[in-house]
Amino acid sequence: MSAKFEADARVRVNCTVNGKRHTGYAEPRTQLCDFLRHELHLYGTHVGCEHGVCGACTITLDGRLARSCMTYAVQAEGAEIGTVEGLSEPGTLNPLQRAFSDHGALQCGFCTAGILISTTYFLADNPMPSEQEVREMLSGHLCRCTGYEGMVRAILSVAGGGS
């Protein structure tokens, strides 16, 4: 049966984020990023442009990468969502996160969450990427601080690939 919600409906949305069950309320038009941040209080996902270019808000949604600014919270009913908060155990960093730090892959860190999510997904898909492939993947994100060089090096170091 079709799910149907009126424009001003306050919709209960149940989803699983980083393996934990969450429930919150959203209107049909509520952006998923706003729902994650201001309803579920998962502030690690950042919002940089709200039109799908900068990539800061990238998450995984049912096994795909999604720009959470252009996905609506009601679309996440029953979904499995992955955000930066789920990448490592509290108080620890995973090898990719450590590599980002070691290689100077972040400065202000605002774009970083989305890039880590993309990269994690990408490396599962393509475990031994070339530098060109890494750069093409990263081109779906904007970073204004680093010039991307550290990110490329960090990702290649974790992938065990190289030029």
């Binding site: 941040r37 502030y43 919002v47 730090s101 202000c108």
Partner: peptide, 17 residues
């Protein structure tokens, strides 16, 4: 290594919004 990084990499750094 930057002291700022752990919070930024784990989603624990807090920004104005």
């Amino acid at each position: 290594p930057r002291l700022e990084d752990a919070a930024l990499l784990s989603g624990n750094a807090r920004f104005i919004d």
